[in-house]
Design a protein around this nucleic acid. Structure first.
Lengths: 144, 144
DNA sequence: ATGGACCTTCCCATCATGGGAGGGTCAAGC
DNA sequence: GCTTGACCCTCCCATGATGGGAAGGTCCAT
């Protein structure tokens, strides 16, 4: 199977398949005389594995580990689970963070008239710009 | 105020302040004879504005628009609101997507013993790898 | 006048992905 | 056989926001 066929069959772009080859993640089982990459069922399954793992948000670094566990028939499921849980924790953290952003935006948006007038609580909020730590006297800077 | 002071006062790294200068987003009000960037209150507020907007997840492209509205005393709040709502919609979409990932992972993780044995529903799921759309006859090409 | 803290510019790296140029290969139809 | 179009190859560049670091100039306090 050449790269185009592997791409169609795995749902991974040819560009990415070449990239995985380059970084040594999934190498073609062979090359033809004319230097075309050739992939077999095994590589195909690995490409599908990667695609599925990417769709769950795993980074390439994590996938590298997962794939090597996948290849190892002796792996302890503990290790797989640890990777998954670490990733899940990161995911949850990012979700929480984004939810906070979304809530703030929803609030500001609700407060904004959204008409022709220039007064805008959204811009007002951005202007307030509380510093990370120190509160600091609220800068009553010249109207500018 | 030089770049270090502006950095401290705004919470934006000096590196980023130089970058904003380079892309023309916030330029120093002047340069000293020795070519040091000089920032005034106005620029300081713009930097704080950016920092706050970044913390709400706006992209630099969005911030460019927001900043130009912020500078325009005649802006219609409608435009600000539109940007905010578009961004909010994108955030919500990403949150939903990540929640789906997290739910899947939580489920898989719950099903995984996480012990010394190699059997692992997480790897099993990744192996299943359903194709994006077309089922397609399972390509029985030469077994390779 | 010396040292250290600061500033400058320029280059490189990230991470996963795509775009495109320039050139070789293969298979089908004539 | 030869042409044509669809494929493949490698190599380079770009993304977005950020940081790291080198090489060299500046400022200030001792």
């Amino acid at each position: 199977m050449n790269i185009g066929q592997a791409s169609k069959a795995s749902g991974v772009s040819a560009k990415m398949i070449r990239y995985y080859d380059e970084i040594g993640l999934v190498q073609p089982s062979a090359r033809t005389d004319s230097n075309y990459r050739e992939y077999g069922e095994r590589e195909l399954n690995e490409l599908r594995f990667i695609r599925r793992a990417r769709s769950l948000g795993f980074s390439m670094a994590e996938i590298t580990q997962l794939l090597s566990l996948w290849r190892d028939r002796e792996r302890p499921s503990r290790e797989v689970k640890a990777i998954a849980e670490r990733h899940l924790a990161g995911l949850d953290a990012r979700i929480t963070e984004m939810q906070a952003m979304a809530e703030t935006l929803r609030h500001l948006s609700r407060c904004c008239a959204g008409d022709d007038r220039p007064d805008c609580p959204i811009l007002a909020d951005l202007t307030a710009g509380s510093l990370p730590s120190e509160p600091k006297t609220p800068s009553r800077r010249r109207s500018a």
